[in-house]
């Protein structure tokens, strides 16, 4: 630039350069900068992906791997917010194709009425194939959370029901919406989690999972559980729902609902199958749900959060972790690990 470098050498050696050389150098510099600027405009530089975009891309990658590697996959759809996010990601992953697999809902018979209505409407709108399975043995024995307790009810209607459905349709891979931040044993579960012919998980004998190379090979009768949301946190889920305007059931938003207080848990009286104790009277309260499951097992929280930003604010400020509203993993620290070994999602 400084006289094609000659000026620079001269300066370095303690010499001088003329004002003219310097002016020309500045002019050259200016032209170069303008050119560089123009170049920037012609070849746009994408900005690095932010955290949510990275998570989204990873989940999409995982879903496509399952389709490419597994013979007969299914996506578990439980109607909750995580399922809603998973569904949204599945639509994105295969666009313009529809997700090339059916959706499976294990209906315990005790879900909130609103969940079922939401589920049927969404599946119809999106033209997706929905399979619903309820454990017929449990139905016959009238298994319910009131007389049999949460543990038996969950095991028979949910865990056994799920195994029945997977066996019945011969699914070789099932997507689940579990996240690693939910619970300690989940933090160590693989994204592609291998299950034996009896659907069991062996936490001590997991396949190493390296880079984003996923080994989904199985023998006859074995299967894979795949968790595309493994690396999402609860806050990520909410933020994504907010950013992408994803539909979720109204139950997540605060509204006046009839509830009874059962040992600190606010249980919504969703239908007349719920036996009320002597003198117990449903009270109308402003409540919402942090997770959705079987209504007798899902405690509501008192809240006035009726918009997504309100909910997110509440999530950020509350210091009670998400699954506490659920009655199943309250017993001991390893309880979810035990359930998962047996085949629970």
């Amino acid at each position: 630039m400084l006289n094609d470098g000659k000026g620079l050498t001269r300066l370095k050696n303690g010499g001088q350069c003329t004002l003219k050389t310097l002016e020309t150098a500045f002019q050259k510099l200016e032209t170069l900068e303008i050119e560089a600027h123009l170049r920037d405009d012609t070849i746009p530089q994408a900005t690095p992906l932010n955290h949510l975009q990275r998570l989204e891309a990873e989940s999409i990658h995982i879903m496509r791997e399952v389709i490419a590697q597994c013979e007969n996959p299914v996506m578990l759809y439980s109607v909750g917010k995580d399922s809603s996010v998973m569904l949204h990601l599945a639509l994105k992953a295969f666009y313009p194709s529809l997700p090339p697999f059916p959706f499976l809902h294990i209906d315990t018979g005790w879900k909130f009425k609103e969940m079922i209505a939401f589920r049927d409407r969404r599946m119809k709108e999106l033209k997706l194939k929905l399979l619903v399975h309820t454990n017929p043995d449990g139905l016959e024995q009238n298994i319910n959370p009131f007389t049999h307790g949460s543990v038996t009810h969950t095991d028979i209607m949910k865990t056994q029901g799920l195994k029945q459905a997977l066996d019945h349709y011969g699914f070789t891979a099932a997507f689940g919406g579990a996240r690693r931040d939910e619970e300690k044993s989940r933090a160590k579960e693989r994204i592609f989690s291998f299950r034996t012919t009896s659907h069991q998980w062996d936490p001590k004998n997991q396949r190493p999972e390296l880079w984003n190379i996923y080994n989904a090979r199985i023998s006859k009768g074995q299967s894979m559980r795949v968790f595309p949301l493994s690396n999402w946190t609860e806050l990520d889920i909410w933020q994504y729902i907010y950013t992408e305007q994803i539909q979720i059931p109204e139950l997540y938003f605060a509204a006046p609902r009839k509830v009874v207080d059962r040992g600190g848990a606010l249980i919504m009286v969703d239908d007349d199958r719920m036996p009320l104790k002597d003198g117990e009277k449903p009270q109308e309260k402003m409540v919402r749900f942090r997770t959705l499951g079987c209504y007798p097992l899902t405690g509501a929280i008192e809240s006035s959060a009726s918009t997504l930003p309100d909910i997110i604010r509440e999530v950020l400020i509350t210091k009670t972790s998400e699954r506490q509203g659920r009655i199943i993993d309250a017993d001991n620290g390893a309880s979810m690990e035990d359930k998962k070994r047996e085949g629970y999602f």
Binding site: H51, R180, D181, K184, S185, R186, A187, K188, P203, K204, Q206, S230, N231, T233, L235, G333, A334, E337
Partner: peptide, 23 residues
């Protein structure tokens, strides 16, 4: 907080990879 699997809590060592998230 980190050593999730029951075996690890009993033995007081970390035997697998645990993924944790914070921001």
């Amino acid at each position: 907080l980190v050593d999730g699997l029951a075996a690890e809590r009993e033995q007081g060592i970390t035997i697998d990879v645990a993924y944790k998230f914070f921001s």
